[in-house]
Design a protein around this nucleic acid. Structure first.
Length: 332
DNA sequence: AAGGGTCTCAACCGCTGGTGT
DNA sequence: CACACCAGCGGTTGAGACCCT
């Protein structure tokens, strides 16, 4: 027989997450790492289902998420990727590491879809005037899209395989072979963080960053903060509320982190990353995972390796060029 | 200022494929 | 092999923010 049914939908809370809940979730993940989502509500006492916890983490609390307006570059990427991949938001998110699939999906539906449809309708009008056999041309087009999609999947699979076989080899500069890290890391959020290994420097630096932001906002909003949460924060690693310079440092960090996650300038980008990760290892977050940092050499994550690769930025340009030519001609 | 319409986006829902028992 | 769990994905919803009249 299979596993015993485990349905516990009684008392499940829905709706927006409170800062308290965020803090509990982040603290727990920080302490225990990502593993069994199902155990999180039980172990934390959160009245949320595991799905909700995973979703909240993946789309809001996860380190490295960039929020706010999409840049022109990002929007173009999304349009190109949508033409290439269709509504495969998770796959698209793998090309935009700092954006979540939900973010991309929302942005597409609210901002880009309308413009896209407008332009497409305009193009269709012309096309229809051209040819009456729209069904066959549509079929051919869908076949082309399907082939491109398949090709993309094959490339991704090939790269994943080669990555697995030669883990430490430097990557080449052709698309998408240089992007395995982004595929591996961001297609699914759980792959981002080694399970049961809560000592990834950059990840936890960013987790603490998120926690401190939450805490800061929460403190401002609710002056009657229960001590239990403050204590929890201290014991679980956040130190941003301590010390006079913490706020300034935090702002600088926020800015830097946002900068490093933008694709605007390749050289600046790479330098920023190098500086930032140096800061991560020596700076304000050191105390947060002091024990681990002092006793262990923190390995670079796949993302970090990719980010250090100067050729990486070029890949996005390659993608842009490729898709521009064949997929979204006339969109811009 | 107020009311109604529109927009945005966080969160939920249902489905699917992989995996454990 | 069958059943159930689990994680992930894409579609959809609805509350709040925003804009317009």
């Amino acid at each position: 027989m299979g596993r015993p049914p485990n349905c516990e939908k009684i008392g499940i809370k829905k709706g927006p997450w409170t800062p308290e809940e965020d803090i509990i979730l982040v603290s727990y993940i920080q302490e225990h790492g990502l593993g069994n989502w199902r155990s999180i509500p039980t172990n934390t006492g959160l009245m949320r289902c595991s799905k909700s916890c995973r979703f909240r983490w993946a789309n809001y609390l996860r380190p490295g998420i960039k929020r706010g307006n999409f840049t022109d570059h990002e929007e173009k990427m999304i349009i190109h990727l949508q033409a290439l991949l269709g509504n495969r938001w998770a796959a698209m998110a793998s090309y935009l590491p700092q954006r979540t699939d939900n973010d991309i999906k929302n942005h597409w539906n609210t901002h880009l879809k309308k413009n896209h449809n407008k332009l497409q309708n305009g193009g269709n009008d012309n096309q229809e005037g051209h040819s009456s056999s729209s069904s066959s041309s549509a079929q051919a087009q869908s076949k082309g899209q399907w082939e491109r999609r398949l090709q993309t999947d094959i490339q991704m699979a090939k790269q994943a395989l080669s990555e697995a076989l030669s883990f430490h080899k430097p990557t080449t500069n052709t698309f998408p072979e240089t992007k395995p890290s982004s595929f591996h890391i961001h297609t699914t959020t759980t792959l981002t963080y080694p399970t049961k290994q809560p000592n990834n420097a950059s990840s936890y630096a960013s987790s603490c960053e998120n926690i401190s932001k939450l805490l800061k906002n929460w403190m401002m909003k609710s002056p009657n903060t229960p001590n239990s949460f403050s204590n929890n924060m201290v014991t679980t690693g956040s130190s941003s509320s301590e010390g006079g310079n913490s706020t300034t440092d935090q702002c600088t960090k926020d800015h830097t982190f946002d900068s490093l996650l933008s694709f605007n300038s390749s050289k600046f980008f790479v330098e920023e990353i190098k500086n930032t990760f140096t800061t991560n290892k020596t700076g304000v977050f050191q105390d947060q995972r002091k024990t681990n940092m002092e006793t262990q050499e923190v390995p670079l994550t796949l993302l970090e390796n990719w980010l250090f690769d100067d050729g990486a930025v070029q890949c996005h340009d390659d993608l842009m060029n490729m898709s521009l030519e064949e997929s979204t001609l006339g969109l811009f």
